[in-house]
Each structure stands twice: as structure tokens, then as C-alpha cells.
Nucleic acid binder design. Sequence first.
DNA 1: GCCAACGTTGGC
DNA 2: GCCAACGTTGGC
Length: 139
Amino acid sequence: MNFWLFKSEPDAWSWDQQVAKGAEGEEWHGVRNYQARNNMRAMKIGDRGFFYHSNIGKEIVGIVEVCRESQPDSTTDDPRWDCVMIRAVQPMLRPITLEECKAIPDLKDMVLVNNTRLSVQPVSAEEWSFLCRLGGVDP
DNA sequence: GCCAACGTTGGC
DNA sequence: GCCAACGTTGGC
């Protein structure tokens, strides 16, 4: 299984909205960046990811699961763009801020810390378990 | 609101 | 294929 991180501005799409979608999940549409798209294309059903609030909060707030593999993005006719569907699994018991991640030596290589602009990014297994422990949830 | 980092576009 | 101009993201 691989691990990922999905960024969203809570003004546009928040964790609460994601939770409200329930087990059905929601398309992670609107991504118009090749790197982010390629990351989604690499995802398998059951892969897990962190849900991160950018701009407001700047923290990891929950855990999601890929529930449909990459398919054409329904919000565009442009065939270049597709996206996965994700569903909320559980909230972080304790959200983890970007500030915190930056201060932790074990996380110094995290994409979140080093490439602020990539909206869908990989997370290593080590980073995943570390952050889950920190956030009070099961890896 | 500003600006750094980065991606994309388009002229040559 | 290079690179300047421009647009966007997202932290601060």
C-alpha cells in the first residue's frame, strides 16, 4: 500500500464536507498539474492519504482512502486530466500543523515541507506511521 | 496583501 | 529548444 497527501483550501473543499460525503466518497477533481495527476494515476484502491488544509489552518486534519482509481475528471472535457475518488476514514485525534512538521527532523524530507505547491503528493511509509502516531490514530 | 517558488505559454 | 512573460499556489 502507498501513502499520499491531498491538499485543499477549506474554503473550497473542507474535511467536514469530505466527511459529509461518507463512504461514497468524492472525486478529487480540479487538479491541473501533471505531477499531481501522475501521483493520482499511481494510486490503488485502498491506498491511504492525509487530508491537509492549506491557507486556513495549514494542518493535517484527517485520513482518507482511495475508493476509485484514476478516471477522467468530470469537471473538464480536456482528456489530459483525470482523478481518483477518496472517502474520509477518520479525523486526526490531534491535527498536525505545517509548523510542527517543519520542526521535526524525521520529517525534513517530506514533500509537504519542501514543495509547498504540489497539491497531491506522496508520503513515505516512515512519514506515514510517524504522523499517525503523532496524531493519535492507528497507522 | 505580498511575494517566492514553480508551472505553463508562446514568441523566436 | 530556449527563455521571457505571465499565472497560480500557498506560506507568511
